[in-house]
């Protein structure tokens, strides 16, 4: 089933004035290094980083005025997937299409690549970046849910120039922070499962490691809802799933799915993922 957002941006005001012809002029900085980008951010009023630009352009079409756009395209090292010790690094500018084609990612996190081949549409996959998806973090976006299940951390350059690692669910919000990329711990085997069949009503991600499992429930919450599960949870799929569903916090209602339906579906989709995990199905 194809991805279509059910969570539109806040009601546009004024009504229906979204257009590329509505984009206001801005200054452009084409940064060549992360530090240069950070300095430009510090020096500009109302500046935004842009990579794929999918979400930012849409906001600008709705009238968001941006003083300076700091393009990250020319910064080397931000695009691509590499192994750093026992951590896999996904550069912030890595596109969805890069992920769907990455052998390295496939080797270390089986399942990831297949899931990403169906995210959004092809044109967006080719331009949209993994980092952008994490930073925009709309409720139905997949990167935050996948990363949260994998326990990934993001490396961020803060406005003052210092670097810090932060859990991906804590990203976003700070427009002056620059995400360099995301680290996934692969010191032990890990695989990623997802059930996106009800997207954008609900998606469930499950990361399976020899030491335990972590599930995230996306779409229904402002941020992915994370549940740590013991490895043997997969043996009592229905019970565990029902318990998780019952204990999930209050959900965002949408006009196509009630909270009651979403809660019930958490149990169904999670049960199915646990079954796949137990049976070692892809």
């Amino acid at each position: 089933m194809l991805a279509q957002a059910i969570h539109p941006p806040a009601p546009p005001h004024p009504i229906a004035m979204r257009s590329r012809k509505h984009i206001s002029p801005f200054n452009l900085v084409r940064a060549r290094t992360v530090d240069e980008a950070g300095q430009a951010m510090a020096a500009s009023r109302n500046a935004r980083y842009v990579a794929g630009g999918i979400d930012l352009i849409d906001l600008m079409k709705s009238g968001l005025e941006v003083g300076t756009i700091i393009s990250l395209d020319a910064i080397p090292g931000l695009r691509g997937i590499s192994l750093e010790g026992d951590r896999l690094f996904i550069g912030a500018l890595t596109t969805h299409a890069d992920i769907a084609e990455s052998e390295l990612l496939h080797r270390h996190v089986p399942g990831f690549r297949e899931i990403w081949a169906t995210v959004a549409n092809l044109r967006i996959r080719m331009v949209g970046t993994f980092g952008g998806n994490l930073i925009s973090a709309l409720p139905h976006y997949d990167a935050p849910a996948a990363c949260a299940a994998l326990g990934a951390v993001g490396r961020v350059r803060k406005a003052a120039g210092e670097y810090m690692d932060a859990p991906v669910t804590a990203l976003g919000g700070d427009k002056s922070a620059l995400l360099e990329g995301t680290f996934i711990d692969v010191h032990e085997p890990v695989r990623l499962l997802a059930d996106r069949s009800l997207h954008p009503v609900l998606s469930v991600y499950l990361a399976v490691r020899p030491t335990g499992m972590r599930a995230t429930i996306a779409c229904a919450f402002a941020r992915p809802h994370v549940i740590d599960l013991p490895l043997d949870a997969s043996l009592a799929q229905a019970d565990v799933a029902a318990e998780v569903a019952a204990s999930a916090p209050a959900m965002m209602e949408s006009s196509i799915a009630s909270a009651a339906y979403q809660r019930r579906m958490i149990a169904v989709l999670l049960k199915r993922l646990l079954k796949r995990a137990a049976e070692r199905q892809p």
Binding site: Q4, A5, I6, H7, P8, A16, R18, D58, S255
Partner: peptide, 8 residues
């Protein structure tokens, strides 16, 4: 209108 955009 809740979904009067092409995306939604």
């Amino acid at each position: 209108p809740d979904n009067a955009t092409p995306l939604a």
